[in-house]
Design a binder for these strands. Structure first.
Length: 435
RNA sequence: UCCUCGGUAGCUCAAUGGUGGAGCAAGCGGCUGUUAACCGCAAGGUUGCAGGUUCGAGUCCUGCCCGGGGAGCCA
């Protein structure tokens, strides 16, 4: 057994005690007879101080010749020191063993690099301080999403990744061979969640989705993670309450566990704290169009919002804002019509503030068989592939609602990142499949 | 797919059509509290690829390849 017993994140509990840390060399600074070895172990970075008094002459001699990212086991006494970077504690080095010397120059220096270079070295880039913080926050966000649903009576239902039919043309679907036929990678688990909600009441799925869109923007990936709850006997208002509760809970959880790390990332945590307070804003599509026109956008009623419009819109709010009641024509076939104005859909998008834009899309689903049949016809969709979906309206149809939350966009917003490519360990983009 | 900017040392970037440089990293040396440490020495090049114009091309032109930013697309 070699497994570590103490990790850097827990050093505060070991002040004045001798510890062994298993990690890698992050950087070394030397001032002649005082040497500072920055060691990271995956939970943080600690400064180890070596002097001729603290360590044997032979070990001291080699202590400033260990290349960056060499793996190393260090031993020494923990002390609090205001001069210690990163964690505020340092280790007085009494011994160390290099597990593996790096023999080629480590490509990623603690300096500026271009995004192409970094993306080509993503497998190493994730070792860097900021990237490791983002991945830890991602893990917290994923857990907070699961906790929220699990503790609010939702049942986890896994949706399939292979799907049989191209509902709306194949241009945005990844096609794959499936024995002697074709299958497509899922774009959404929603229709399956509707079936599950009729079986289990409140359900959610959480997994990767795939879109073959040739989009080159800061908010698109070809492979991204989505959480999709679906609730029986929930209307649009109930749906927004769930969405609001979820997003608020995610932000509060991240603030609780990672406030200092958010500050390292340069995130304005006061803005975030303000944004987590319910209720969020609610405006109708028609009002949003008015706001945009006042802000100088050339948009007319009936147009969908582009990235620019979303950015302008959300810069005007200090909390997330629901935009509801879009024209039914620009929305998907399963959206329920507003009984008060059949030209509108009972749908909602949730836009994150500070220019981030859409993180949630959802709404109430059409539960009337006849209207749904007409809608499928109007959208030029083949009815036969939706027969199983139509069964949900034939056998005990009820009002129901749901939404999808894009995990990477949520992470980008909470961490204050410009581009979603840094929110996922190994991003898949239109022009990038490696590493 | 379109628009736009770019591709020069391992990395980040300079270089009026006229001898391709700097900082950092890597190498060597110095420094007893460094914070992307600092100081000194030495080293580092088929200027993305192929053609063209020119006495002369990193620089201008054409094509291709690769990337950034944006647009469109986007249940």
């Amino acid at each position: 057994m070699i497994k570590p017993e103490v990790y850097i994140k827990d050093l505060e509990k070991f002040v004045d005690r001798e510890v062994t840390i298993y990690g890698w060399i992050y950087n070394i600074r030397s001032s002649g007879k005082v040497r500072f070895l920055l060691v990271r172990d995956g939970t943080g970075i600690v400064q180890c101080v070596a002097t001729p008094q603290s360590i044997s002459p032979g070990k001291f001699e080699g202590s400033d010749k260990i290349p960056q990212e060499s793996s190393i086991i260090v031993r020494g006494k923990v002390r609090k020191d205001s001069r210690a970077p990163y964690c505020g504690y340092e280790i007085e080095l009494t011994d160390y063993n290099v597990v593996s010397y790096v023999e080629r120059e480590y490509p990623i220096a603690l300096k500026e690099h271009g995004i192409d270079f970094l993306m080509n070295h993503r497998h190493l880039w994730i070792r860097s301080y900021q990237q490791s913080i983002i991945l830890r926050i991602r893990a917290t966000i994923v857990k907070s999403i699961r906790d929220f649903f699990d503790s609010n009576g939702f049942i986890l239902v896994d949706a399939p990744i292979f799907t049989p039919n191209a509902c709306e043309g194949t241009s945005t679907l990844f096609e794959t061979n499936y024995f002697d036929t074709k299958a497509y990678l899922t774009q959404s688990g929603q229709l399956y969640m509707e079936a599950a909600a009729m079986a289990l009441g409140k359900v959610y799925c959480f997994g990767p989705t795939f879109r073959a869109e040739k989009s080159k923007t800061r908010r698109h990936l070809t492979e991204f993670w989505m959480v999709e709850p679906e609730m029986a006997y929930y209307d649009l208002e109930d749906d927004m309450e769930v969405a609001e509760g979820l997003v608020s809970y995610i932000i509060e959880t991240v603030l609780l566990k990672h406030e200092n790390e958010l500050i390292v990332l340069g995130r304005n945590v006061d803005n975030l704290r303000k944004a987590s307070k319910r209720p969020f804003y609610r405006i109708k599509y028609a009002e949003a169009v008015e706001l945009l026109r006042k802000a100088g956008h050339d948009i007319k009623y009936g147009d969908d919002f582009g990235g620019d419009e979303e950015t302008t819109l959300t810069k005007q709010f200090d909390k997330p804002v629901f935009v509801t009641h879009y024209p039914i024509e620009i929305k998907a076939f399963y959206m329920k019509r507003d009984p008060n104005d059949p030209s509108l859909a009972l749908n909602m998008d949730l836009l994150a503030p500070e220019g981030y834009g859409e993180i949630i899309g959802g709404g109430q689903r059409e539960d009337n068989l006849q209207i749904l049949l007409e809608s499928i016809k109007k959208h030029n969709l083949p009815q036969n592939v939706f027969e199983w979906y139509l069964d949900l309206r034939r056998y005990g149809s009820v009002p129901h609602s749901g939404f999808g939350l894009g995990v990477e966009r949520t992470i980008a917003y909470i961490c204050g990142l410009h581009h979603v490519r840094e929110t996922i360990p190994f991003p898949r983009l239109m022009d990038r499949l490696n590493p």
